[in-house]
Design a protein around this nucleic acid. Structure first.
Lengths: 252, 252
DNA sequence: CCCTTCTGTGTATGATATAAACGGTTTATT
DNA sequence: AATAAACCGTTTATATCATACACAGAAGGG
């Protein structure tokens, strides 16, 4: 009887007794989760408290517990909610590369719209319906690719992590651009300059030049450039997969 | 004057006035951070409270604030602390592929030793000394690879993110193995069976067979197999980069 | 020698998640 | 139709936090 799997997962699947007795419910799970998501979108994940969510809906904090067993479960539901992409059902007219590119882009878009997704402390292999629907979509894009199931899953894992990396980068760049270069707390110089002065060539022989050139702090990059970076890594990954397919074909 | 960069970063660099006047300090930053890390290692990140850390050291919670401005900063310092890998300084005797593999493996090992690292909110691209030292190490492994600096950074970010995804997978599998297949809360069946019954072929045409086969819940996989999965994705990435290098070489 | 500065410590405060008990409401059962 | 059970949203209470503030003592500088 240890702490086991969060039953927010069960909730996300709509499992629960249909409770016929008692008064009519005045809220819905969806309503609660959507409210929580919009709060997180606006003010960050830390702003999501039971109180705030409930008050936004005109109820008391405790009322939420009639719908959700705990806040952790709410967060799981939030994650699932934003994974509800409107999946285009182009019937694999295009190749698998295009499909994977679309998958990655869609995932990155989620991070862009909901930056708090990067901060959620509840993580793990996807287990909720919308998240799994995305996996299913990606698998569909690979349906005619001669890979083992486990290999396909590995590819999806790889691409997901790539999208996440892009999300982090994007968020940092957005923040850097928003802040501009304000004088820093512990020196008169801007943040980038401060970092550059700390990353000395003795201590960081390889990193030093990168930071000094400003490439690390992304000062001169725009969002458009970030897009280019996304392209670069993605193309490398897909090339790698393609090469593997070729090699595999030769062996047979 | 918005909320700006956490100055826990400044602390991690050892920046601060050397205070000569008052009484001698009875603790040190390192002591505090190490204690916090060991608590997180043992009981998870949620167990790390100012009170608990201070009490472990025989002091009161408030005393910590003489060393650390806020708990968020403490977490940043914790992240930096566990990034203090003892970096092998093999002078690039091996190729860049081996170097990148070592980098990924080392990162994964950190996740294995400190699972709470996965739960810490990502504040963004690394900015603290030990974390940057790791980046420097990775850059060193790429020193003779003809890529642009920005491309190298993109590769490193990607591999970091991939390592994180592997860390998540590893942890989930470890938990799944530890739990075995306990009867679930909302059905008599085990968790894997429950999931399999939810992932119907109608709703998840492509994923269904994967889940049904048990490949998704990783029931029969050992940690060794997980290593294979890691290998697969990693090799694809590296293959893709290698191909890019080849193409680039031909063009010149 | 005093005064400034810093130390660790109590005390206090405001958030927070969530448990427990309550009055009112709806429906199933008798 | 009457009763009882189940359930809803609320009120109240508690425990845990992070952290602001003010204090008493310690150490060094003038």
């Amino acid at each position: 009887m240890d702490k086991q799997l969060p039953n927010g997962i069960a909730l996300s699947w709509g499992l629960g007794k249909p409770s016929s007795r008692g008064p009519k419910r005045e809220m819905s799970l969806k309503q609660i989760v959507d409210t929580a998501v919009s709060i997180a979108d606006k003010d960050g994940l830390a702003a999501v408290s039971m109180n705030r969510v409930a008050k936004s809906l005109g109820f008391t904090a405790m009322s939420l517990y009639r719908y959700i067993p705990s806040k952790d479960d709410l967060i799981i539901l939030m994650q699932d909610a934003i994974s509800d992409l409107s999946i285009p059902l182009e019937k694999a007219e295009h190749g698998w590369r295009e499909a994977m590119e679309a998958f990655v882009q869609a995932t990155i878009d989620v991070y862009k719209e909901h930056p708090w997704f990067l901060e959620t402390p509840i993580y793990g292999v996807p287990m909720t319906p919308n998240a799994l629907k995305v996996v299913d979509w990606a698998l569909g894009g690979l349906q005619h690719v001669p890979l083992e199931d486990s290999e396909k899953m590995a590819v999806i894992l790889l691409l997901s992590s790539y999208a996440r990396a892009c999300g982090i980068l994007q968020k940092d760049m957005a923040r850097a651009m928003q802040l501009g270069s304000p004088p820093d707390a512990f020196s008169g110089k801007g943040y980038a300059d401060t970092l550059a002065s700390l990353v000395t060539p003795e201590r960081f022989p390889y990193l030093h030049s990168v930071v000094a050139s400003g490439a690390y702090t992304d000062e001169n990059q725009s969002s458009e450039d970030a897009g280019d970076d996304i392209e670069f890594g993605l193309k490398r990954i897909l090339d790698g997969i393609e090469q593997y397919l070729k090699k595999k074909k030769e062996q047979t």
